[in-house]
Amino acid sequence: MKEVRPATRIEVALLVAAAVLPLILQALGEDYHIGFATRLLIFALAATGLNFIVGYGGMVAFGHAAFFGIGAYAVALMMTAGIFSAWITWPVAVAAAALAALLIGAVSLRTRGVYFIMITLAFAQMIYYSVISLEFAGGDDGLSLEQRSTLAPLDLANDATLYWVTLALLSICLIALKRLAASRYGRALTGVRQNETRMAALGYPVQHIKLVCFVVGSAVAGLAGALLANQNGMASPSQLYWTQSGMLLVMVILGGVGQRFGGMLGAIALLGLEEVLGRVTEHSHFYVGLALLAVVLFAPRGLAGLWTRQK
């Protein structure tokens, strides 16, 4: 049984290191990398949400890009309507993603296994094609943001501030998901993942438990999408496309399914590798792909599994 223990020294040290990173980069004159580091954290957040669904809930969802994209488009659309405050648009982005997940999840959770993979994929593709055929959503071009969201009293136009806000939100989500996983609900969820029939026989509302998990993980993706729209300066259809869902799922599997930091590790490893290889070759994806194959064959429990003990 899991105990909620206080953060370990390593976790605190990592958080402090992450917090001072922009100062170091500024001192080195490598300001460009602050934006890249923010991107890493945003994808870490989206992958963390997916890891909650896949790893804790045991549901292989293949449509996470839908909720990621909905968050981004919510922020961009509200900005075209003249609403700039992040205090309004970000919660709305999260709520929009959660609502979409509630509707999609309620239907999809009637299926299981490969059928669940396929139905979440189908819904995500519906959202992708709907968005690119809507003129007011910018069609194939996506929607540009006039400026970053305003988050009084902070100034998000400053790259380092956006980074710190992202880091804070990622930390909050990680802690909240850890607590949720250790709560009564989290234990019931683990029970459902391990043996759904038994939990149903014990009188637990199995469908309800799974749906909550799906909605929570997707809402986290909505928040990540809102942040990514700010970082990229636009909401792009490619963020909704199925390959984005695939990428997020790859991050989770790479990092370690069901490991607390699995999503985060996978996102940072994958995007980091892409960036480093991008410096030396035009064809970084070729080598990223080979590295992923090596992980599948030689590290079946993902990167996090390399140094955690077998449960």
Binding site: M247, I253, H283, H285, V288, G289, L290, L292, V296
Partner: peptide, 17 residues
């Protein structure tokens, strides 16, 4: 299925490049 998704998605990346 997760391992299969990871490996065959990796193949897409490799094939495209």
């Amino acid at each position: 299925h997760l391992a299969q998704v990871l490996a065959t998605f990796a193949l897409i990346l490799i094939a495209n490049d």
